[in-house]
């Protein structure tokens, strides 16, 4: 449980912006003070117009919590989204942005948890899971982990090269990637690739790869995605409180 209540607004400086996919950019922020983070947490950003109008949104931290004065947030461009379009179209390195965080203490993973885990991401739902995986990679103990990723098309797969490298270097980490719409030629040649929505059978395959039952599952994605995966995990007998979820979107 987080007992740190220092959730004052901080004025962060954008230090880099880069494309993760046609619709997602990563923004790195320098923070004015050290922040004690857990993998899976998020930050709020607040934008204020010259006439005083304010709005705010939450974005998952993708960087490892070991980096305390600098965080990375992945922001997807949403059609008509006033905050995401400002980030995608206006924000540049050097800009100042008000942020508040870290927020959320439940959907978090700590490397001292060495029991096997299942991570399941739909689309940009991979963001908090990437923070967990980056944290895991730099820790001496590596919990057996299988990551399931569902994206629409190949260009929508986020952090792909980094995750592939992690997988090559680490025998305790496996992934299954599925594309729900267009798949490239020869996509299914590798047996870790699928071309359908994540279903019960695919989850069973992931658990076989894990070699034992997961002690917890972290599921992040759109509402429909998380609802369906949550039901499958209950169906295979996982305990309700071992399934941690983060949903987004209407």
């Amino acid at each position: 449980m987080s007992t740190d209540t220092s959730l004052d607004w901080q004025i962060a400086t954008v230090t880099s912006v880069h494309d993760e996919s046609p619709r997602v950019k990563s923004f790195r922020f320098d923070l004015p003070k050290e922040n004690y983070l857990s993998a899976g947490q998020y930050f709020d950003v607040r934008l204020t117009a010259p006439d005083g109008y304010q709005t705010r949104r939450s974005y998952s931290i993708t960087s490892s919590p070991e980096s305390r004065k600098s965080i990375e947030l992945a922001i997807e461009l949403i059609a008509g989204g006033e905050v995401s379009s400002y980030f995608h179209e206006v924000v540049q390195p050097g800009d100042k942005i008000e942020v508040q965080g870290p927020i959320g203490g439940y959907f978090t993973w700590d490397p001292s948890q060495t029991e096997p885990i299942l991570l399941i991401a739909g689309g940009t739902g991979i963001a908090p899971l990437v923070s967990m995986l980056r944290h895991r990679q730099s820790s001496p103990t590596k919990a057996p982990t299988v990551l399931m990723v569902s994206a629409r098309t190949e260009p929508d797969l986020l952090f792909r090269k980094e995750l592939q490298l992690m997988e090559e270097e680490d025998l305790n980490f496996d992934s299954i990637v599925t594309l729900t719409r267009k798949m490239p030629k020869n996509w299914l040649i590798e047996n870790v690739r699928e071309n359908r929505r994540i279903d019960l059978k695919m989850i069973e395959t992931a658990i076989n790869r894990l070699g034992e039952s997961p002690s917890s599952a972290y599921v992040c994605g759109g509402t429909g995605f998380v609802e369906s995966i949550g039901n499958h995990l209950l169906e295979i007998g996982m305990a309700y409180t071992d399934i941690l979820t983060e949903r987004f979107g209407p």
Binding site: E82, V219, N231, L233, R247, G249
Partner: peptide
Amino acid sequence: PPGQYQEDGFPVLSAGPTPK
């Protein structure tokens, strides 16, 4: 209220799966 935006959909936020 301050900091809110008007949503026409009905988002779902829960810490776990939907219990039966």
